[in-house]
Design a protein around this nucleic acid. Structure first.
Lengths: 193, 193
DNA sequence: GCATACATGTAAACCGTTACATGATTCA
DNA sequence: TGAATCATGTAACGGTTTACATGTATGC
């Protein structure tokens, strides 16, 4: 459902084609929401039918015509309504935690291998957030109002907070696994030997 | 995809019906993965077709027969393989951050209202994790091997880490929003007045 | 010569939620 | 009397991903 509102949100800044909207996704909110073109195009035509957008064709030769979408008054209203709506907390879905939950199946070294791999990936992601944060003031276009930039930066801060939590958690988890006594293949009891 | 492995994981401890599996979801991994019965039942019969499980019917009167599923050697192998597999980092999907990203649409008080509501919900969730953590040693059945309990507790620790990060982030966000100057409806410039 | 940017889509598959369907027993 | 527990499912719908479909211009 957020796809629709993300599209409205971007079109509230400027008229755009689906292709350009995809670029905005990729350069800003892709850290916490993304969409493929194959989802964006049908969503836009549906939103046009619903009166949230209007579309104008720019004719081109040697490539498909550009379909430029513009937000309507109804669209602006719907965006504003949604942004101000308090929602239920969405439930967490973390496949990696399912893996950890059943990880006693593995011997200690395999478990540590999986955890270290995850740690490396969490670190890389966090590093990217930090780099993005550093370059933030240069990246943000000057014509943008300051209040927008504040909220954009808040979403980045969220990524850094969560990312830091993830890295710390795996680091501590690795230490706890190292300290375990009865892991299969460890020093003490083995259940199938 | 994790549904399949969660089912294998639980059935690796004991033979069970779909109904009982659902109860295990609800009392343990529901913090990071959940499933409805309407998804569990077809998944189980598919997994039986794939040779990961075998099913035995226990006849009952006055209610549907119990279909007790048992993991096969192939199922155990598949579980073990998956638990030891390193996976790509899954991308984050946080509708709330989409909302924050476009929140400059709101006046300061409305924005603060939405953030405070979210803060309250994050706090409640974190509180639940803490309560669960305290009662953890009592809740874990005695017959369970200690190594399983260590990994189960790690997933709880993850919840507490992320939950704490979320609470801290919103608290800081609220302070930053309070400190903003050019928010619509704030003390300074208004763009449509 | 190959990848990327530009520019549009459709179709099928997959995963998950909600609604529908049935019906006895037990507890408050 | 009404809700929860036990116990099974199917059908429809919605959102997302992957694969298929087309084709030029530009830069490395």
């Amino acid at each position: 459902m957020s796809l629709k509102y993300a599209l409205l949100g971007f079109l509230n800044y400027a008229d755009m084609t689906g292709y350009e909207l995809k670029q905005h996704f990729d350069s800003s909110i892709q850290h916490f929401w993304n969409a493929k073109l194959s989802q964006i195009y049908p969503a836009l035509s549906q939103m046009e039918k619903d009166g949230l957008l209007v579309m104008e064709v720019e004719y081109q030769e040697q490539r498909p015509n550009r379909k430029v979408y513009k937000i309507t008054a109804a669209g602006r209203q719907e965006l504003k309504r949604w942004v101000g709506t308090t929602m239920e907390l969405q439930s967490v879905r973390e496949a990696f935690l399912v893996q950890v939950f059943f990880m006693a199946q593995l011997d200690r070294e395999s478990a540590l291998g999986v955890m270290r791999h995850q740690l490396e990936q969490y670190r890389k992601r966090l590093e990217n957030y930090h780099l993005f944060k550093k370059s933030f003031s240069e990246v943000v276009p000057a014509e943008v109002f300051k209040e927008d930039a504040v909220f954009w930066e808040l979403t980045l801060d969220a990524g850094i907070k969560y990312g830091t939590a993830a890295v710390e958690w795996v680091e501590e988890a690795i230490e706890k696994i190292k300290g375990m006594e009865r892991v299969k293949g460890g020093l003490e009891v083995s259940h199938d030997g």
